[in-house]
């Protein structure tokens, strides 16, 4: 049965428990980071951070607003990254039928920097990263080992606020819609980010642009799915040329 996350950012306090739990469970090394003028650190997702809490602040209608966005792979229902990868190397990116998890496998090692670039560009949420030392591609695994052994993903287990939720897709959608109705009472601009296309459903209190440039996919509306996929012809085209 397909699984989904529901990430209720209206509850997030940016404690970064999820960011660190992810590192701990996946035994990812700490990056040597620098302060660059924000609490958001490391500054971006990387091969050692599958999960990153993004901090953004704005003055809206004269009031200071602070937005937190625990970013991660959306495990798209029809993952563009996989479509592109399949055309380069079958098996580099797989999708688990049962859970819907999109996985970067050890096969990604064989992909070149350019291949990786094409895959990264295909992702509407700018998620894929590459470990330059090993050549492996990296991103959230939906804690595949954990969920297939009956455990919640590490980020969900640790979250102290109820922001991170995980379970059957149907149940998560139901929860998401219930919360949306609730949050809309105070924040009429609240929305769910591409709920029909992804397994990681974010609830945003306000206009997505306040959260992160890739908080929602650019042309993701279900009706536009064809057009959306058509965009992927770009990388295919390039590939075809290279092969010929």
């Amino acid at each position: 049965m397909p699984k989904s996350f529901f990430i209720d950012t209206s509850k997030c306090t940016a404690c970064r428990g999820c960011q660190l739990a992810c590192k701990e469970w996946n035994a990812l090394d700490a990056n040597a980071t620098k302060q660059v003028g924000t609490h958001q650190n490391p500054p971006d997702l990387n091969a050692n951070n599958y999960k990153l809490v993004r901090f953004n602040e704005h003055v809206i209608d004269g009031k200071v607003r602070w937005f937190f966005f625990p970013d991660q792979c959306r495990h798209c229902l029809t993952p563009p990254c996989k479509i592109v990868a399949d055309s380069i190397k079958e098996g580099a990116i797989t999708q688990d039928e049962k859970t819907g998890a999109v996985l970067f496998t050890a096969e990604t090692k064989g992909l070149t920097k350019d291949d990786f670039q094409s895959i990264r560009e295909s992702c509407p949420y700018d998620i894929p990263r590459r470990n330059e030392a090993t050549g492996l591609m990296a991103k959230c695994t939906m804690c595949f080992e954990r969920i297939t052994n009956g455990m919640l993903p590490a980020c969900v287990k640790v979250c102290p606020t109820g922001t991170m939720n995980f379970g059957e897709r149907e149940a998560m959608l139901e929860l998401a819609n219930k919360r949306l109705a609730e949050v809309k009472k105070t924040f009429p601009r609240a929305s769910l980010a591409n709920p029909d296309d992804v397994s990681v459903i974010f609830l945003l209190q306000d206009d997505p642009k306040y959260y992160h440039s890739s908080a929602v996919a650019e042309a993701p509306a279900p009706l536009d799915r064809k057009a959306f996929l058509a965009k992927l012809v770009g990388p295919f085209g390039r590939l075809a040329r290279e092969l010929s």
Partner: peptide, 13 residues
Amino acid sequence: KRDEDGNEFLVGG
């Protein structure tokens, strides 16, 4: 499970 008491901040241990 964590207390599901509808609180929007800490859900409780």
